[in-house]
Design a protein around this nucleic acid. Structure first.
Length: 868
RNA sequence: GCCCGGGUGGUGGAAUGGUAGACACCAGGGACUUAAAAUCCCUUGAUCGUAAGGUCGUGGGGGUUCGAGUCCCCCCCCGGGCACCA
């Protein structure tokens, strides 16, 4: 089975064993439910044209080590890989070359697959998935239909980046400093019809359930911040002109309501026009125009420079009846809360800044707790704006109350008067789910007339949302109804197109494919024929226009971890029995750049599926780990333009995969950001050479120092071996591969120095090295007489009895400084240790003639003598 | 500005409050060799000293402790995230 090379010829050995694994289906995962399962998942890659980046094998090696280790520990391991293959680069390539993006995508996948296989990862290739495969995206579309049915998908006009020069919509990442990435043309905001997913309906659960997952704290915090829950109250301010009704604001500080000196509404607020008095009309119109012209970027850029305009109207404070002016300013966002605020400049930095700029009054109503509570409500000197702890002043009956108490009381009182209510707001916005692109999953939706929709509703009520999703076409003033395809009609595949160029009117290239776009559709079955043909007979045939938007790249990656459980199922996205057995990944490893979006979107979809009862658990990723970024040799981020990239293929050619894997793991903690250092590679390569030489002699024969007699191992070597087995196991479990490798280096160095070594010791050593360096260990295992693959060998166990030392070191310190080292029998007590220390040549000089004030003794560790 | 993470030899890094620098890389010296490569052995934080040995040393400054890289307070620098969210 093994090769016959004399030296460590990795170029021969590595492909040999990769072929062996492939031919023997060594990593095929069966659904053997008698074993405990372990599901370890990598974030699947986008197969870019550039090929594998050195960052890919870093995380992938980590999970591969875990997968191989868990198999050896008796687990049924699921370790799959696939391709997140929809995406912009393939589409741009298609636009440029005119070739179908699928062709380019398949080429890239072929290259990625070759590179990944050359790294010797133990993936079950029979479970490979590809998000662009209709057999896969059929189920992406199916999940969309479930969201649609639940009323979690709707259509709205939303601003997107539009480039008039390129006549296309651009993604955020294609816009750099207000110019298109391609060609540097100016871009503008344009409102287009978009699909939006109601992720905000899940905001509370997405936040609350973070407590149930084992994730890096920083990632949890990022998601928390992104969801941005804040508790407060909505308060109603009467407008002075009674016909205008109320102005509703959201505030987290109802306790400061007596400090309100003005109001602000966003320039997009629906009341802007009604509130503007004739005298202010011109100023307001000019301001609105200016605000509309600003991009989001400019609006934030100009954050320091606040601007606004007086509307001319006044509102009445519900707490004290005070008359306050209503301003219009773009530091208030329409998208959050009610788009209107009560401004309390004394206790809010932004309001303060604005008040100073426009010379609006500032009334302090909170005083620091430490300040003397003056009876005459004389305020003490405090730097405004003040947002710290304190009690109320100048707040009528509420004066003197601590702010937290006042907040509750004021909210309750205003609620009673019908002027407010406690509410919770989230920063999280609904998820803009459509792209005006070709290379994505088509939406399985047709736009039909209301009459046709009602007709469909009569037979397919179960497929429809509680309220119809509609869209009013501004040009024709017609309202269209979104009719989903029946699940049985999926997948809705992408049609062939003449050109991958966008249509030019903001719609995707699909809008140009009339045959596909305009159809007669059977409302019951979803069957369709082009509208250019005669309407088929039967009342179930209606006229429809297909949705031309496609789904964003996130869609396919939102649920792929479920498909791996049952990737060829054509009846369901996965068999419920298998979902029950495999559940969700036990470990998910990927970059921290996905800390928010991918992980939040996937959690959202998973919860929807959970609510539908099709997955058994509420969270998709119980344990998450981020591998760190590998920087270039120069300590800078790797990039082609800097020329500091590292290609895994090159390292494999010069040093072999096992060396690359080991080196990536030895570089430092997996989660750390660390620079690539080509010199360090030699160290781990030498280590593998050393392992080879300890096993085999010059001619490739079994090293004559190896004995079948276990008693040739010294007690120290036995102890070290067992320590190593223990530490390597523990380190692998906690993904501390760098220290596992260092321990194995210590162990092989000791083996090398020993004159004889038992075969059993070397075999166990090879076993614990096998997850990290699988090829060389297979080879040496076979050469040392292993008849089966080393993967099939159970993980060695360590004997705690062998770890017990008879002697211990005790460091003698005098006044905290190390002075001597004692070798004492285990269990030595303080008195005996003291005697030895007083007699020891190194420590005695520091002790004789001194008064001992205190002795600190930690058995087996330290003896610290405090002297005068 | 706010929230995280980090700062240890020439380099990557190691260290449950208990010998700082494990394990490697680099460098220097030696053995083997006709020579080289490979391999093996030794040295390798700084500093003073011929030496034994001493002193200093984990970004800076304070503190807690018998004892601090580790815990607490303040500050500096680097990386990441968020950024008018009321």
């Amino acid at each position: 089975m093994a090769t016959h090379c004399k030296d460590y010829d990795f170029l021969q050995i590595e492909p040999h064993w990769q072929t062996f694994w492939e031919e023997n289906h060594s990593f095929r995962t069966t659904n053997d439910t008698s074993k405990p399962k372990y599901y370890v998942l990598d974030m699947f890659p986008y197969p870019s044209g550039a090929g594998l980046h050195i960052g890919h094998p870093e995380g992938y090696t980590g999970t591969d080590i875990i997968a191989r280790y868990k198999r050896a520990k008796g687990f049924n391991v699921l370790h799959p890989i696939g391709w997140d293959a929809f995406g912009l680069p393939a589409e741009q390539h298609a636009v440029k070359t005119g070739t179908h993006p699928a062709a380019n995508t398949q080429n890239n996948i072929t290259n990625f697959r070759r590179q990944i296989k050359a790294l010797g990862f133990s993936y079950d290739w029979e479970r490979e998935v590809d998000t662009t495969d209709p057999k896969y995206y059929r189920w992406t579309q199916w999940i969309f239909l479930q969201l649609f049915k639940k009323g979690l998908a709707y259509v709205d006009e939303r601003p997107v980046w539009w480039c008039p020069e390129l006549r296309t919509v651009l993604a955020n990442e294609e816009v750099i400093d207000g110019k298109s990435e391609v060609g540097s043309f100016p871009v503008e905001r344009r409102n287009l019809r978009q699909w939006v997913l109601r992720i905000t309906a899940y905001a509370e659960r997405l936040l609350a359930d973070l407590k149930d997952v084992d994730w890096p704290d920083s990632t949890k915090r990022m998601q928390e911040a992104w969801i941005g829950r804040s508790e407060g109250a909505e308060l109603l301010f009467k407008l002075e002109a009674p016909e205008l009704g109320d102005l509703k604001v959201f505030t987290t500080r109802p306790d400061t309501v007596f400090g309100v000196t003005y109001m602000v509404i966003a320039p997009e607020h629906p009341l802007v026009n009604a509130l503007t008095t004739p005298a202010q009309r011109d100023a307001v119109d000019a301001y609105k125009k200016k605000a509309a012209g600003k991009s989001d970027l400019e609006r934030t850029d100009l954050a320091k420079d606040k601007s606004g305009v007086f509307s001319g109207s006044y509102a009445l404070n519900p707490a004290n009846g005070a008359r306050v002016p209503v301003w219009i300013a773009d530091y208030v966002l329409m998208g959050y809360g009610t788009g209107a605020i009560m401004a309390v400049p004394a206790h809010d930095e932004r309001d303060y800044e604005f008040a100073v700029q426009y010379q609006l009054p500032i009334i302090q109503v909170i005083e620091p707790a430490a300040a003397p509570a003056a009876a005459g409500e004389e305020s003490v000197a405090v730097k405004l704006p003040y947002s710290g702890d304190g009690h109320l002043v100048r707040s009528g009956a509420y004066s003197g109350l601590p702010w937290a108490e006042a907040k509750q009381k004021l909210t309750a009182d205003l609620t009673e008067q019908g002027r407010g209510k406690a509410t919770v707001n989230y920063k999280l916005r609904d998820w803009l789910f459509s792209r005006q692109r070709y290379w994505g999953e088509p939406f399985p939706v047709l736009w039909v007339t209301e009459a046709d929709y009602q007709k469909a509703a009569a037979v397919r009520a179960a497929d429809l949302p509680p309220a119809p999703v509609t869209y009013r076409d501004a040009a024709t003033n017609l309202t269209w109804f979104a009719l989903p395809l029946p699940a049985t009609a999926l997948p809705l595949t992408l049609p062939e197109v003449q050109s991958y160029l966008p249509s030019g009117n903001g719609e995707s290239p699909l809008a140009n494919v009339t045959e596909w776009l305009e159809v007669w559709v059977n409302l019951a079955t979803g069957a369709a024929v082009p509208a250019t043909q005669a309407q088929p007979a039967g009342s179930e045939w209606i006229r429809g226009r297909r949705e031309t938007n496609t789904m964003p790249q996130w869609a396919g990656s939102c649920w792929y971890y479920l498909r791996f459980i049952d990737p060829r199922n054509d009846q369901a996205f996965a068999d419920p029995k298998l979902l029950a057995y495999w559940g969700v990944p036990d470990l998910y490893v990927g970059g921290a750049e996905h800390a928010v979006l991918h992980l939040l979107y996937a959690r959202f979809w998973h919860k929807v599926l959970f609510d539908l009862g099709v997955v058994p658990q509420a969270e998709p990723f119980t344990k998450l780990f981020h591998q760190g970024i590998i920087l270039g040799e120069d300590g800078e981020k790797m990039s082609k333009s800097r020329g500091n990239t590292v290609n895994p293929d090159d390292i494999i050619a010069t040093h072999g995969t096992d060396t690359l894997r080991l080196y990536l793991m030895f570089l430092g903690p997996l989660e750390a950001m660390k620079p690539w250092n080509p010199n360090g590679i030699e160290g781990v390569h030498r280590f593998l050479q050393k392992v080879w030489r300890e096993c085999l002699g010059r001619e490739g024969e079994v090293n004559p120092k190896i004995s079948d007699d276990a008693s040739v191992d010294s007690a120290e070597l036995v102890k070290l071996l067992h320590e190593t087995i223990k530490k390597v196991g523990e380190d692998i479990e906690s993904l501390r591969f760098n220290t596992a490798i260092s321990q194995m280096m210590i162990c092989i160095n000791a083996i090398q120095k020993a004159e004889r070594v038992s075969r059993a010791t070397l075999q166990q050593f090879l076993q614990i090295l096998a997850p990290l360096a699988p090829h060389i260990t297979e080879e040496l295992w076979a050469r040392l007489g292993g008849t089966q693959s080393i993967q099939l060998a159970a993980w060695p166990t360590y004997d705690p009895a062998k770890l017990v030392a008879t002697e211990q070191k005790v460091v003698v310190q005098v006044n905290g400084k190390r002075r001597a080292e004692l070798a004492v029998p285990v269990g030595t007590q303080q008195d005996d240790a003291m005697k030895l220390a007083l007699a020891h040549a190194d420590s005695a000089p520091f002790l004789t003639g001194k008064t001992i004030k205190r002795i600190v003794f930690v058995p087996g560790k330290i003896l610290n003598i405090v002297v005068e």
